[in-house]
Design a binder for these strands. Sequence first.
DNA 1: TAGTGGTCTAGACCACGCT
DNA 2: GCGTGGTCTAGACCACTAT
Lengths: 240, 240
Amino acid sequence: MEQPNRSPLYRQVREALMRRLVDGHWRAGEALPAEPALAAELGVSQGTVRRALGDLAQINLVVRRQGKGTFVAEHTRERALFHFFHLVGDDGKRALPGSRVLAVKAGPATREEARRLAIAAGAKVVRLHRLRMLDGHAAIVERIVLPAALYDGIERLDRAGLPNELYKLYQDRYGVSVARAAEKLKATNAGPEDAAHLGLRSGAAVLEIDRIAYALDGRPCEWRVSRCDTASHHYVSEVV
Amino acid sequence: MEQPNRSPLYRQVREALMRRLVDGHWRAGEALPAEPALAAELGVSQGTVRRALGDLAQINLVVRRQGKGTFVAEHTRERALFHFFHLVGDDGKRALPGSRVLAVKAGPATREEARRLAIAAGAKVVRLHRLRMLDGHAAIVERIVLPAALYDGIERLDRAGLPNELYKLYQDRYGVSVARAAEKLKATNAGPEDAAHLGLRSGAAVLEIDRIAYALDGRPCEWRVSRCDTASHHYVSEVV
DNA sequence: TAGTGGTCTAGACCACGCT
DNA sequence: GCGTGGTCTAGACCACTAT
């Protein structure tokens, strides 16, 4: 391992492995080479590789299993739901959302969309509008904006072709792995349209979740605004 | 280090150190013994102590500084604000909240309060009602419930004696260190009283943050419900 | 039995903060 | 100069998984 800069070796190893993950050098779910192989290849000790892999496991980019190996993290249904979906029933049970796509449209990005997705103004985006169900009734209205450059042809998927867990679709079909997300929450009074979709009176309080999802390489890959009826559900957040 | 169970050594060391932190064996801000001293005392290698201390640093129970030592984490003003306070201005600037105490009262816990704080029904609690300012105008109404057993005589503090950063007060004066918190968020329509405090019309959407704070030993030490005007601020959440 | 990751140790050297 | 935590190595042994 050459040392172009003054950062610790384990960090250089971590970044090198991360580059390969970003490049798609290994597919989601695939096993990485074993520690001794990586150590030999990179010219560092096994301990240094361990440290780097441990860091990657910590941020959920890889999964390590004793006796089996180290694997590229996958967006399983579980992970998509439990890791990135924070609405739970007031009784503490996780409600599994269903979803119904209302519209899919492509078009040039507005200034705001371009800013949030860090793309050029006017670049093509695909907009999804969908309704999600919790415990059988409509509880979330979602407006999703995708940079079309990352998801070639996604606007031609019919509504049945768009699964409930979009993050798994992004990963499996387009090679876009969502690594992290930043959410901004507000309480707002529902407008007439959202209220109608959610079966609420206009002006009812809804929780607005504005989320930018970032891909492995750190670039925004989705902007999603969800307006949620929190009458019998709530958003959970743990602070350590 | 004896091995009563089959857990890894570093975990046993971590728990042993944690017990001392919980017991108040070291005060907030105080330096722990250096690694070699701890290793010798516990009969393990320095590497094992390092791993345990690293874990404790990760969950913010201690702070490690190269060349200086390892210190018990303190609730500085910074930490209280940036770690546990998640409302920021829509312009991205952190608004530093001021606060005005409206009422302090002691009384027996309701069933709900007892349940949330994991204390006996009817046990004495202290209730605080306060208003917090963001950028100069009232933006948050807070109702705080404390188990009186942990905060002897806190209800006799005058309003001037109750600082803006309560967590630092809990730690400095009562030895209660908030280690983590669980928050539940909902959007609700403001009732007449909250609306009046916040200068909103009745029925305006407000963000309700329901937080249980846990002390080092894992027991609840505060129940706080904050109702926030999110017209020009929002709650931030990072998902990794 | 062989290969994987997980734990634990011992020791070397480095970077930082003090005095 | 000395003590602190930070990095890096090499090697031993353990626990789990597969064949």
